[in-house]
Amino acid sequence: MSRRAVRYWTARAALGWLALTAGQVVWFVLDRHDAGIAHIIGLAVTVLLAAAHLAVMPRWRFAVHRWETTADVVYAQSGWVNRERRLAPMSRIQTVDTQQGLFERAFRLTNVTVTTASARGPIRVHALDDAVAENLVAEITARAGAAEDDAT
């Protein structure tokens, strides 16, 4: 993962919390006759939860998410509480794709998806530096093409 991923995940999560907070403020303003302590408590709880989420989530996610390639497999680990570890043999790889949304482009990050014949679905590696993602795709493509056993 790129170190910029922490800032990216923080900014992306902050947009959601800002939308929720803005909705609560609009509700407070429009509901003047019943505006009271409940609105203020709700807003305070939202701000506290947002602060905790924004402080913990991106760093925790960065600490947990991992990926690696060897001559034989692609490995990825993800999750917060429930961790998922996936291994895909090079001989099972069918496609390697990259995705980059507008927000990810702003942070110069790219996601890589490795699709196999597995019913479990593709392996996704998120928030890589653009150059690292480009090299990873080239490496996996070359290794998968050179794999002798075709298990697909």
Rank of each mutant, 00 (worst) to 15 (best):
M1H: 04
R3Y: 05
V6D: 08
R7P: 02
A11D: 01
R12M: 05
R12K: 04
L15S: 04
L15G: 13
L15Q: 09
A19L: 11
T21E: 14
T21D: 10
A22E: 10
A22V: 10
W27D: 09
D31K: 05
R32V: 05
R32D: 08
H33R: 09
A35V: 11
I37F: 15
H39K: 07
V47K: 10
L48W: 14
A50H: 02
A55W: 12
P58S: 01
W60L: 15
R61D: 05
R61L: 14
A63L: 06
V64S: 03
V64M: 11
R66S: 11
W67T: 04
E68V: 06
V73H: 15
V73S: 01
V74D: 02
Y75P: 07
W80D: 02
V81Y: 15
N82W: 15
N82L: 09
E84Q: 13
R85W: 05
R86T: 14
P89L: 11
S91Q: 07
S91G: 12
R92M: 04
R92P: 14
R92K: 11
I93R: 02
I93C: 10
Q94N: 12
V96T: 03
Q99S: 15
Q99R: 09
G101E: 04
F103R: 01
F103M: 06
A106Y: 14
R108F: 06
R108A: 13
T113G: 07
T115C: 05
S118G: 15
A119K: 04
P122M: 02
R124T: 15
V125Y: 00
V125T: 00
D129N: 03
D130N: 08
E134T: 13
L136Q: 00
V137C: 01
V137W: 02
A138L: 13
E139M: 11
R143P: 03
G145D: 11
